[in-house]
Amino acid sequence: MNEDTELEGRLRRAAELFDPVPESLLRVARGAYAFRTADAELADLTFDSLAGPAPVRGGAQPRLLTFDGPGVSIDLEITPSGAGGRVVGQVMPAQQATVEVRGAAPRTVTTDGLGRFVIGDVPSGPFSVRCRAGDTAFTTEWVTV
C-alpha cells in the first residue's frame, strides 16, 4: 500500500513536470470571475444534440442547442466553419431582441421581428450569449464551440 502511495506520488510529480496546467489557462480561469453573471438570469442548457449516448453522425452535422430561461428560451444551431462556427439562432417566444456574444471578443447583433439572428465566424472556444428582449434579459450557460 505504501509502495502504491509512493509510486503515485512520483507520478504526480512527473505530471507537474511534463504536463502542468498551462499558465495561460490559469490566467483565463482567474479572469472568468469578471465575466460571471447573476444567477437569476441564467438560462440552462436543456437540449444538446451532442449530449446523447450515441448521436447519429453523418458528416459535419450542425449542433443543436436549447437554453431555457424564465419565460424565454433560445435555440441555437452551430455549424462548424473554419476555426470556429456559424451560429443561427432564434429567441422564443418570437420577438425582436438584442443578442450579445460574451467573452473576450464581445459582439452584439439585433434579431429580426421573429427573434432570428445569425452570428458568423464565432471563434472556437467557450461560447455564451446575453439576450435582451423587451424588459427581460438572460444569459446562456457556456458551451464549447
Binding site: L25, V28, A29, A32, G125, P126, E141, W142, V143, T144
Partner: peptide, 11 residues
C-alpha cells in the same frame, strides 16, 4: 478547461 471555469463562475 476554459469553459469549465466560465461555467463555474456563472454557477
Amino acid at each position: 478547461f476554459q469553459t469549465c471555469w466560465f461555467r463555474l463562475a456563472d454557477n
